[in-house]
């Protein structure tokens, strides 16, 4: 199994370190040429979604990856990665009027907790499992989900983790903590997809 990590900007090395720890081979995606190499899953890391969206388009990666995600490639987006997956964005800036992959049937509010002073850390339940350490950095949350979307976690009533078939998204950054359970969940999704 090999997991690709979008490496155009942001905290991608933290995901790669987590996957190293779990014994999974990785591949950094920086431009179109990198898409020629085989991979079984894709991680969209934290960073600035405006920057990442622009680089995805200009490096010719948006359309090919969108096609593969739509065809069932397992994908996991954290924070900015969740924004990249969302079909609807509720407070879009002028610099990026369009959603990006728009493959996941969720409506996401960017910078939903305000500026950096609104960033926080908490511990909450996810997918029926207790005590996930969760780090929210200028984080988004999900305002609404479509019928095929399973809500995995809420904090203070806001949806902060969800899954739709092979797409997984969290507002928080499991890659910044020592807890590998969210990545393990994603790896199980890849195994099931590979078996199918």
């Amino acid at each position: 199994m090999r997991v690709a990590v979008l490496a155009v900007q942001g905290a991608f090395i933290e995901h790669i370190h987590m996957l190293d720890r779990l014994g999974v081979a990785t591949l950094e995606l920086r431009n179109q040429d990198d898409l020629a190499r085989p991979f079984d899953g894709l991680i969209l890391p934290g960073g600035e979604s405006t920057t990442m969206g622009r680089l995805l388009r200009e490096q010719g990666m948006l359309a090919p990856l969108q096609k593969r995600i739509s065809a069932g490639l397992p994908v996991f987006g954290t924070c900015a990665g969740m924004i990249l997956l969302a079909r609807y964005l509720s407070n879009q800036g002028e610099a990026d009027p369009l959603p990006h992959f728009a493959t996941m049937d969720i409506k996401v509010r960017r910078n939903a907790y305000g500026r950096q002073l609104g960033s926080f850390h908490t511990v909450a339940e996810m997918a029926g499992l207790p005590d996930f350490p969760m780090t929210f950095i200028r984080a988004p949350y999900i305002e609404a989900v479509g019928p095929g979307v399973e809500v995995l976690a809420r904090v203070e009533g806001r949806i902060i983790a969800a899954r739709q078939n092979n797409q997984l998204a969290t507002s928080f950054h499991p890659e910044l903590t020592a807890d590998a359970r969210v990545h393990e969940l994603f790896l199980r999704m890849i195994k099931v997809a590979d078996a199918a």
Partner: peptide, 18 residues
């Protein structure tokens, strides 16, 4: 300490950027 951690983590999100 928690606030300092969050502040270091925001810088992590800026990496690879201009």
């Amino acid at each position: 300490n928690e606030r300092y951690g969050l502040n270091k983590e925001l810088a992590q999100m800026l990496k690879g950027g201009v």
